[in-house]
């Protein structure tokens, strides 16, 4: 199977830059698997888990929003914040949920904005459920 370069970049640093055979992205409109020679695509990312398969190794990262730039030769994921799943701290996501909720509750938002916030909140809650099974 052909490989391609995958880069995971957060504003603070370049997290991953390696060749991968398969990457699963949590795109806004559903999960998306990227392999080599993918059609050029630009997509936004919702909070979720990115799975990178390279040379038989599988690594997983938690990302909070961002977007991905996919080209036949490679894939660049610009994440707002990204952490490897093993180093992930559950308080982090709980704090974010808290923040999103208080943001939603205080202040009157336009309808469109409100739906977006609600969606974001439900995505976060879902992610929390996946990562921290009660």
């Amino acid at each position: 199977m052909a490989d391609f370069t995958f880069e995971l970049v957060s504003p603070e640093r370049l997290l991953v830059s390696e060749t991968a055979s398969e990457v699963v992205l949590p795109a806004t409109e559903g999960e998306m698997t990227v392999m080599a020679n993918h059609a050029p695509t630009m997509t936004t990312i919702r909070p979720g888990v990115v799975t990178v398969k390279s040379a038989g190794k599988v690594s997983r990262y938690v990302v909070f929003g961002g977007f991905a730039d996919i080209l036949p030769s490679g894939c660049t994921l610009l994440a707002e914040s990204a952490v490897p799943v093993d180093e992930f701290d559950r308080t982090l996501i709980e704090r974010r949920i808290e923040e999103a909720r208080s943001h939603l509750d205080n202040g009157d938002h336009a309808d469109e904005h409100k739906t977006r916030l609600e969606q974001f909140l439900s995505e976060l809650t879902h992610l929390n459920g996946v990562l921290n099974p009660a």
Partner: peptide
């Protein structure tokens, strides 16, 4: 470089992404 020439698929549409970007 190469990326400029490529014709992109946008998901959701370009305006939406720009709004986020």
């Amino acid at each position: 470089p190469e990326s400029a020439a490529a014709i992109y698929d946008y998901e959701p549409d370009a305006g939406e992404i720009l709004n986020d970007l």
